[in-house]
Nucleic acid binder design. Structure first.
Length: 290
DNA sequence: TATTGCGATTGTCGAAACTG
DNA sequence: CAGTTTCGACAATCGCAATA
């Protein structure tokens, strides 16, 4: 079931296996360069669910209404930590695994790297390849934010609250440096297909300088970010079901051939594209992790 | 569709040199 | 002296072919 309103799009499903509700919110237009989207979710299942979360060119803020989502180390399968009111996941070039105890309830804000840099007010190498508790990043504001969102009467009210908070924080924070803004915009606009040397020439800085600044401010080197952007497009096409063949998709998105695409795919998801499609979960993104 | 091998090309990073 | 560039070694990615 899907319903529409100016600020929220709701998708719901219920069955004997439990039910879920997913609500997408559109951020205020002034946040366009900073936030991709908002999402609210509520799910209950008969047992624990593990999801494989794929890397993407975004910084994720999770606001947990409880019970808390667990983060599992993909290499060992052991729990990495729990963050009662929520957490931030910085840019990452590897997938991660989340686990629910049978239900989850909360919200997700997907920041652009530049938006996250500005919102969190710290160089993002502090957050890269890490999951950090909300209170460590936002201080006392973290738990307070979660509390206010829980108490809001509707998803729309929650989205409005997020707008308010993000606008007040972002618009009063200093802008990211021009080098970083240009790097991000150029990488994104090209679908991750500019040479880093070319990018540096356009900026009038040495390649070394651009790499260092990008790594410092956004948390990943520009090439890695470019590959992530390219890979993310592939994922979007695969999810939409619009891909004719892998070979075609690879060429369209700037890979040399199918082998090249599959290599990237293995590195970012732990398996080939076919496996991703078979394991894909209908709701809440992610794929089954077992 | 998926995997592997291998040479060529590009990206990254430390050390040294430069500039204001 | 801080910030930056240049140089060069090394690592990672790409390009291409072959094969299951």
């Amino acid at each position: 079931m899907t319903t529409q309103s100016p600020h929220a799009r709701v998708v719901r499903q219920a069955s004997e296996q439990g039910g879920w509700e997913l609500v997408f919110g559109t951020p205020d237009a002034r946040l366009r360069e900073h936030v991709h989207d908002y999402c609210g979710y509520r799910e209950s299942t008969p047992g624990p669910v593990r999801r494989r979360e794929l890397p993407a060119p975004q910084v994720v803020l999770i606001i947990d209404f409880g019970p808390p989502l667990r983060i599992v180390d993909p290499r060992t399968g052991r729990p990495l930590g729990r963050h009662p009111v929520g957490f931030v996941a910085g840019l990452d070039d590897g997938y991660s695994i989340t686990e629910t105890a049978g239900s989850m309830n909360g919200m997700q804000v997907n920041f652009t790297p530049v938006g996250a840099r500005r919102f969190f007010g710290m160089p993002l190498h502090h957050l890269a390849r890490q999951v950090v508790g909300l209170e460590s990043v936002l201080g006392a504001e973290g738990p307070l934010l979660t509390e206010r969102l829980v108490e809001a009467p509707s998803w729309e009210a929650r989205f409005a609250l997020l707008d308010q908070l993000l606008l007040s924080r972002i618009l009063t924070a200093p802008e990211a440096s021009p080098v970083i803004i240009w790097t991000w915009q150029r990488l994104r606009a090209s679908g991750g297909q500019v040479e880093i040397g070319e990018l540096a020439r356009e900026l009038g800085f040495s390649q070394k300088h651009v790499i260092a600044r990008c790594g410092q401010e956004l948390g990943l080197t520009p090439k890695l970010l470019a590959r992530l952007i390219r890979f993310d497009r592939v994922i979007q096409v695969l999810k939409s079901g619009a891909a004719e063949s892998q070979a075609r998709l690879a060429l369209e998105q700037g890979y040399f051939d199918q082998a090249h695409l599959i290599r990237d795919f293995r590195q970012f998801t732990g398996g080939p594209p076919g496996e991703f499609l078979r394991r894909r979960l209908p709701a809440l993104g992610g794929t089954r992790a077992d």
